[in-house]
Amino acid sequence: MAGSYVIAEELGRRLGDQPTVIGRPEPALNADWNIEFDVARPALAAMSAHYERVLAAGSTPFTALSRCAVALATLPMIARFHPDAVVVWFDAHADLQTPETTTTGYLGGLALSGPLGLWDSGLGAGLAHANTILAGTRDIDPPEQALIDRGAATLVSPGHDFVARLAAAVAGRPVYVHIDCDVLDPDIVPTDYRVSGGLTLDVLRDAAAALASSRIVGLEIGEFEAASSPVASRAAASRLLDALQPLLQ
């Protein structure tokens, strides 16, 4: 995901800091989740160790992810150092599949279920179900819906009073924000997956402002694809970060 570098540069500019790069670009395998996971494991372990250092130092991570699967490494550390924090998972998809229930074999579909302890990734777990909020999620498979119905996460679907419902679910608790760009309506920013009925940038901005009334313990942004030109990529990243600016303050 070449676009992650664009997000990192824009975050660095706004925060006045230089990004630390974990891992290196590699060709996509387009293989089953366990094959991709084995290849990605060293970089994910390095990411986990970096988050441990950042959080142990009392710092706040602002991260440009490639794919959502990197949350397998980040969220267990957030749960360890901020056990009272709510993870707000902005994503069109629930990503609550497990190795037993996945129908696609896509590693990203297991990204949230690992930190929740629904399967053993080897990278840790510890994220409490009561501290997990799916925000703007609308493409949910039946096994994922069954987990939600049993309390694996709180669902705040898009639509009327989205921001108010999200704020009520957070209830003033500390917040770690995960954003998959497909939570937005298609064509707002470049991303691989297109799911209609998403959030607008105005709604995302209002949600960020509402969340900013809580203590923000970190932010990660993933699934931002490079646009047709460097200029278009930077413009799209700027639009997205403008909407998220309340979280950066």
Results as ranks from 00 to 15, higher is better:
M47A: 15
N131W: 01
D38M: 13
A236S: 15
D95M: 04
A46H: 14
A57C: 03
L116G: 10
T104R: 00
Y176E: 05
T98W: 01
D187Y: 10
L248I: 13
R234P: 13
I140S: 00
A164Y: 01
L112I: 02
Y176F: 15
D180V: 12
T102Q: 01
V175K: 11
M47Q: 12
S113G: 02
G122P: 07
A69V: 13
A164M: 11
V203T: 14
A152F: 09
S228Y: 09
P190R: 02
P83G: 06
L211T: 00
L96T: 04
W89F: 05
S121V: 10
L247I: 03
N34H: 15
T132F: 00
G3S: 01
G122S: 02
E144A: 11
L199P: 03
P143K: 14
H50T: 06
R24V: 15
E100M: 13
A130N: 05
L240Y: 03
T74N: 12
A69W: 04
L240Q: 11
G218C: 02
R239W: 00
D38K: 15
L112T: 07
G136I: 00
V195H: 00
S157R: 15
V86Y: 10
A130E: 12
L201E: 01
T132I: 03
Q145A: 08
V183F: 14
W89H: 15
L107S: 00
P174V: 08
Q18W: 10
R138V: 02
L112A: 02
A31N: 14
P25S: 11
F37T: 07
I216N: 07
L75E: 15
T101F: 01
A227F: 03
F90I: 10
A208T: 05
L55H: 09
E52C: 12
P174Y: 07
P76W: 11
E225D: 09
P158D: 14
V217K: 04
L166C: 11
L65V: 11
D91R: 07
A40K: 08
L29C: 14
S4L: 11
A43S: 15
E9K: 11
R234K: 14
D149C: 08
F90A: 12
P246L: 03
T191D: 06
I188V: 12
L248S: 12
V86D: 09
A71Y: 02
A226D: 05
A40S: 10
E225L: 06
I133P: 11
A243S: 12
A232T: 10
E100T: 05
P27I: 04
P230N: 14
V70I: 15
